[in-house]
Write a protein that binds this DNA or RNA. Structure first.
Lengths: 211, 211
DNA sequence: ATGCTTGGATAGTGCCACTGTCCGATAGGG
DNA sequence: CCCTATCGGACAGTGGCACTATCCAAGCAT
């Protein structure tokens, strides 16, 4: 199919598709002549994924490129590629250890990981964007005067562990390794707004029940 | 305290504080002379909340203003003000009902709400930004070929219901109504990155366990 | 042949969250 | 009382991001 048809079937303007091509989010089409290119179903599928990551998942174009590059990197092993989506987090600066709120947050999180039985090598963890972001978030709560200690965090951690089981079950339903990796990326990112929306709706529901 | 001290204790530059004052995210200080103003602890507290919402929660300046205005609106009742933070969602357009993926998503979500026993008046729900965003997200997953039907969503819904209980317990620990409202805003928004980070860490943990 | 379409290159747009600069009015030390 | 540093306010400017508009030469359809 031509660029125009790719645009029509994906909902993205041709200008946007050209932009994604330039930015390396999409493979160039098969050149059919000096000025024409042909795109296939896999381009359409990929484009839809990219648009979902960006529009629904709120991932930046730069992060989307990283995620997709990692997901397609044949030199990495399956496990690593499954974790590709983890790179989609706006990677915060390494938290400032001198800030007392950050120090408190670090202690709470470390204790939490221990209680949950998760691996908790401090050196390795600090390289994990999710871990850094967790510390930053807890530190912000501490700064505002909300305790946010291990006891408060534990129910969240347990629920997250349950979510992970459900999520990986969905990934393992995919028959091919490539399908599993795409599913891991898509489900990691796109279930986030699902989860947050459901939480807010649940708040409204529970609040109505109580008041 | 002066603007300079407010800046130092909050970590925001004076230029940023002036910007927030201009945008109405912060009450002006008590005028002490024609060119000086005095700020109190409540200004500092509020500023820290604003910065946490924006930096950690990723809320836009415009949304933060809406949220804070709603939280402080004395003419609303307590229950409504507790839900103020709900307005912080980047409010998507009303989904296009003609899109088959959206239609499928609507059906799945409606069935989900029924299974969860949540109120499910379609007219009212479409006004709720969280509900709209849920539909959009599910529609994106459907478009990518992931089923995302009620069966898949149900575990997420049940977990969200558990989260809401925990969250509202934390809110109810606050002694004053004003404290409860601030806690509702802060905890709704700031536990989101906590939850998402924990989910990604749990993914890594569960994936390591399986592979 | 001709007129529309295609893909590529490049510059421009609109939005957002600040940030830099200027100004007149003090506040405080000598 | 004077002099200088600082203050708060106004407003234009900046940088980043996700596109978007325009132009162009080369096809393809008629």
């Amino acid at each position: 199919m031509r660029l125009a048809e790719l645009s029509e079937r994906s909902g993205a303007s041709t200008a946007t598709i050209k932009y994604y091509l330039r930015e390396g989010l999409l493979q160039p089409g098969r050149r059919i002549s000096a000025t024409q290119a042909e795109y296939g179903e896999e381009h359409l599928r990929r484009l839809r994924l990219v648009r979902a990551l960006i529009q629904i998942g709120g991932v930046s174009v730069a992060d989307a490129r990283e995620v997709i590059a990692a997901a397609e990197d044949e030199s990495l092993d399956h496990h690593l590629r499954l974790g590709a989506a983890t790179r989609a987090l706006p990677c915060a600066e390494r938290p400032d250890e001198d800030d007392p709120a950050v120090a408190t947050a670090c202690r709470s999180v470390e204790a939490l990981l221990e209680r949950l039985g998760w691996s908790c090598d401090p050196g390795v963890n600090m390289l994990n964007p999710a871990h850094r972001r967790l510390i930053d978030s807890v530190a912000a709560l501490v700064r505002l005067g909300y305790p946010c200690d291990t006891e408060q965090l534990l129910p969240y951690g347990r629920l997250a562990a349950q979510l992970a089981v459900t999520d990986l079950d969905m990934v393992e339903e995919q028959p091919t390794p490539a399908g599993q990796i795409e599913a891991a990326v898509a489900l990691t990112v796109l279930y986030e707004p699902v989860l947050l929306s459901l939480r807010r709706m649940a708040h409204a529901e529970e609040s109505a029940r109580r008041f």
